[in-house]
Design a protein around this nucleic acid. Sequence first.
DNA 1: GAAACATGTCAACAGCACTGACTTAAATTC
DNA 2: GAATTTAAGTCAGTGCTGTTGACATGTTTC
Lengths: 173, 173
Amino acid sequence: METVLHGKHRAQAEGQDADPMFDLIELLFFAYRDFVGDADRLLESYKFGRAHHRVLHFVSRHPGLTIAELLDILKITKQSLSRVLKELLDQNFVEARSGVADRRQRHLFPTGKGRKLALDLAHLQSRRFSRALDSLPVGARQDAIRFLMAMIDPSDQEEVKSLVWPQSARPTP
Amino acid sequence: METVLHGKHRAQAEGQDADPMFDLIELLFFAYRDFVGDADRLLESYKFGRAHHRVLHFVSRHPGLTIAELLDILKITKQSLSRVLKELLDQNFVEARSGVADRRQRHLFPTGKGRKLALDLAHLQSRRFSRALDSLPVGARQDAIRFLMAMIDPSDQEEVKSLVWPQSARPTP
DNA sequence: GAAACATGTCAACAGCACTGACTTAAATTC
DNA sequence: GAATTTAAGTCAGTGCTGTTGACATGTTTC
């Protein structure tokens, strides 16, 4: 008679029908909801939504970004982008300049106003991370970074790395 | 002349305008996007959306839930719930039974079909967690659980705990 | 000069959230 | 027992964010 693995052990060995990790699934859901909720409240006072936030964030983080590069990061269609981008341009949170080398391209830059709002939003969300990490052991920040990175599609991880830590000093990714 | 803290050190001491944690902010954004993307693809084949997923998930996890309890977990309005719930009821993924003690209440239960879909979705998402955790040191699972819990509004953490680990054996939360 | 490319625009639609107003039936309170 | 509160359902309208598809404009490349 063969020795068989069964139940949880068999499942873990096969990686097939292991017990669902309900705890992680639900915690990520609730954590993300609170995380975006912070920004939502501030955005509301500007009559902006999450889409505006994302555009403003990545334009602030990567000034001079082209439309195509932004679309690639956000993974949305140009029609989706155009609505929110137009509002950000009209209300002077972002400005666009034609490319020098290629005049078809439009390079996006945050204005002073835009940079400030982007920073305010980032501070809000950073405060949540700070509070969380302060309640955890030393090293939790690195652990969190590694965990979140590992949750991203492996085929995208390199791209995300170069986006999150452009060029220089990557703090032990 | 006084000794002053400045730059990063001053910021961290005050917890005020510390450098924004762009890395964590962006990693959480990308990680969550991939995380929900897994389920989205499967849901699409049923013509369901994320709202259906959430309802089906919590009904499966807490069979017998009332409408009011579900609304409280999801933090949406009854009008929002009604549309997706109706579809889940019509297509026999969920069934509702009037309360015995209080006949105004409707208790929600997953059908066999509903339980299976909920489980398939949970497995998909668990596989992502598995893959991530396998690439990390032993203990990463507990670290992740603690990190995600700490990211939730402190005033909600107890409620989330009792939702995620009902009654019995809470694995060192 | 033709083809490919970057961007913009118009139109229609879907999903999922919201507010506000009103209904029904059952339970609770006085 | 009548009045009130409660649980749930419904109707109508709206906002934000995403989608597809088709087409226009100017620019660069071959």
